[in-house]
Design a protein around this nucleic acid. Structure first.
Lengths: 106, 106
DNA sequence: ATGTTTAATCGTAATTTTACGATAAATGGA
DNA sequence: TCCATTTATCGTAAAATTACGATTAAACAT
């Protein structure tokens, strides 16, 4: 069997299937300016509630809620209901997974 | 001056301004299944031409060309005209930058 | 029970992205 | 010069995303 010569590349991108889908979805979710800002805000304001983020961003409550949903579905954050409010935190486990995957393929 | 207590976070996301814009744009560009596939293909087929990628993906030539443009504008790849064709490679320098930035903030 | 607070969801408009066929432009061979 | 090859761009349709006001639902205090 002939093995094709492949020059040394600057990354492997060695990932496929569901893991790839999951990673691409995380890239897509964080690839939006406002959602990236939400992530940054959560680093310094862990456990804050939706209203805090609404106050912080120049967006309507419904829009922020929608962005939070995208981040939640992608696994970047998790929300816990506390009273009538919802408290948001970074999803440490998934972020650790992201860091490892990116570290492996880039 | 009172400094607020901030618990240890799983990442810093310590980035802002133009660098943040640039990074978010790279996230956005690679956050598309077909564009991610193109990147993977280029790892193992460096220097291939547009037509090779068109043959590889179930997309029309115009669509692939458009995806290549997005990847180029985001800095993921670079194309060099060779004859009537265009040869594409990963943009090693920008990818190295991406790797470092992600490594710093995550 | 009623009213207040909070956030998700609904409905919808505007914008952006994605996809494709057709065309144009550029190269190089016959 | 004429033709074939290759790819970018144009025009446009369809789909997805983004944004917002209005509504709904849930929790809790009075």
């Amino acid at each position: 069997m002939k093995t094709e010569f492949v020059p040394e590349a600057c990354c492997t991108l060695d990932i496929s299937g569901l893991e790839q889908d999951r990673l691409v979805n995380m890239f897509k979710a964080i690839g939006n300016p406002y959602r990236f800002e939400i992530m940054k805000f959560l680093v310094t304001h862990p456990g804050c509630i939706t209203g805090d983020i609404v106050d912080y961003l120049p967006l309507a409550q419904a829009t922020v809620s929608q962005h939070l949903k995208v981040l939640r579905n992608a696994g970047w954050i998790e929300g816990t209901v506390s009273g009538p409010a919802t408290s948001y935190c970074l999803h440490e486990e998934n972020i650790a997974w992201f860091r490892e995957e990116v570290g492996n393929i880039f």
